[in-house]
Design a protein around this nucleic acid. Structure first.
Length: 108
DNA sequence: TCAGTGACTGACC
DNA sequence: GGGTCAGCCACTG
C-alpha cells in the first residue's frame, strides 16, 4: 500500500470525520476529485479493516443506509458503534441523516 | 493484458 | 415513490 495511493487519501479523509458525524462514499470520492469513484471508496473501506484508526462505520451510502454493516463483525456492530456516538439508527438507516452528515468538501 | 467484482450513484421506468 | 439498469474506477486472479 503506497502512502500516496487513492486508498491512502480515502483513509486521511475518513480519519478526520468528527465523532458523532457521518459522511457518504460519494462525498469522499468527490473530495478526492472523482465523484464517480464512489465504489472505489467502498473498496477502500473493505481494505480499511487492517487500519484501526479508520472509522469505517462513519461512512455510509448517500441516503444514510448501512450497506456495509455485513462487513463488520456480528450483525449490528456498525449500528452499535454509531449509536454509541450519538447517531440513531433505525432499520439499518441513519435517523436525521442530513443532521449528522459531514461534508469533507466544506469542512476541509 | 483481460475480464470479473464491488461497503455506489444518477438516470429511467 | 420504489425497483432496475448502466456507468464508474481500482484491485485481483
Amino acid at each position: 500500500m503506497d502512502n500516496n495511493s487513492f486508498f491512502y487519501k480515502v483513509y486521511e479523509v475518513v480519519k478526520k470525520i468528527p465523532t458523532g458525524r457521518v459522511t457518504s462514499y460519494g462525498a469522499i470520492a468527490q473530495y478526492l476529485g472523482s465523484g464517480k469513484s464512489a465504489r472505489v471508496v467502498g473498496w477502500a473501506m473493505n481494505a480499511a479493516h487492517n487500519l484501526p484508526e479508520v472509522p469505517a462505520h462513519r461512512v455510509v451510502n448517500r441516503v444514510g443506509l448501512l450497506t456495509g454493516k455485513h462487513h463488520f463483525q456480528g450483525t449490528n456492530l456498525m449500528q452499535q458503534l454509531l449509536e454509541n456516538e450519538g447517531v440513531l439508527i433505525e432499520a439499518n438507516k441513519i435517523v436525521h441523516f442530513k443532521k449528522h452528515f459531514w461534508d469533507p468538501n466544506e469542512s476541509l
